[in-house]
Amino acid sequence: MTLTTARLTLRLLNADDWPLFYTLHNDAQVIEKCFDKPSEAQLRAKFNERLKPWQPNSNSPLCLVIVETSTGKEVGVTGFTSSTVPDSQEVGYLLLPNFHGRGYATESLQAVLDYAKSEHAVREFKAVVTEGNIGSEKVLEKCGFQLVDKQLDAYAIGGVLYTDHHFHLSCTDHRA
C-alpha cells in the first residue's frame, strides 16, 4: 500500500524502519509534548505491533512512513488505530524536527484521512493532543478537526501533569 501527495510518498512501515522509529521516539524535540521517552523494550513492542498487517476494523494500527518524494528522505510516521467507537479511528503522527514547519504533517494526515474515508468508509476520527503542542493542534484544525473536550491534568510527561485536548472530525463535517 502506498499513498502519494504533491510532495510526499506514504508507505507501510517495515522492519528496516527501526532507526527512524527509534529516533522519532527518542528525540527530545519530537516527544517533549507527546510522551516520556520509552524504554527500548517498550519501543520494540510498539514497533512490532505496527509491523503487523493492518486490516479494516482490526486492532492493529496502520503505520505509514512519510517520505519526501523529491529527495527520498524519511520525514516521519503517520497513521491511525481503532478507537473505542465503532467506525472511528484515532490518528497520530510524528515528524523529525528538521521537517517541521513545511506543511508535511498536514499533507500526510489529509492523505491518510482521504484514504480511510474513501477506501474503508471510516466515518469519524479522533485525536488527543497535549496542551501546549500548538503545531499538532494547527495540523488537526487545517484537516477539519474541532476541539471538543479538554481533560485537566490527564497526562503526565516528565512528572508534570498536562491537560489533554480532544479533537474530533466527522466525515459529515469535512469533505465527506
Score class of each variant (00 low, 15 high):
T172Q: 15
L13E: 02
L12H: 12
S88T: 05
L94V: 06
S70P: 04
V65R: 04
L62V: 01
R11S: 13
D153G: 15
A127L: 12
C63D: 00
G103K: 11
H165C: 15
D16P: 01
A121V: 08
G101K: 00
T23D: 13
F167G: 04
C143M: 00
N26I: 05
V30I: 09
T81Y: 08
H100R: 12
L147C: 08
S108P: 12
T163C: 12
K73R: 14
T5M: 07
N57V: 10
V160W: 05
H120Q: 09
N14A: 13
H100D: 07
R11T: 11
N26L: 13
Q151T: 12
D149W: 10
G76T: 09
D153Y: 07
Y22W: 07
Y155F: 14
L140C: 00
E74S: 04
L8I: 03
E74Y: 03
P19E: 03
E119G: 08
R123F: 03
F35N: 10
F35V: 02
F21P: 01
V122K: 04
S88L: 01
T69M: 09
C63Y: 04
L94S: 01
K52W: 10
E74D: 11
L113K: 05
R175A: 15
E141A: 02
T130A: 13
V67M: 14
Q110C: 10
V122T: 13
E90P: 13
G101T: 14
E107L: 02
W18I: 13
N14W: 02
Q151E: 12
V77H: 05
E124T: 05
K138T: 05
G76L: 09
D16G: 08
L94K: 06
A127E: 14
L10C: 10
C143H: 05
H25F: 09
G135F: 00
W54A: 02
S83E: 03
D153I: 04
R50I: 03
M1H: 13
T106H: 04
Y22E: 07
D16W: 03
D17R: 01
C63L: 02
V91G: 05
T5H: 13
T84K: 14
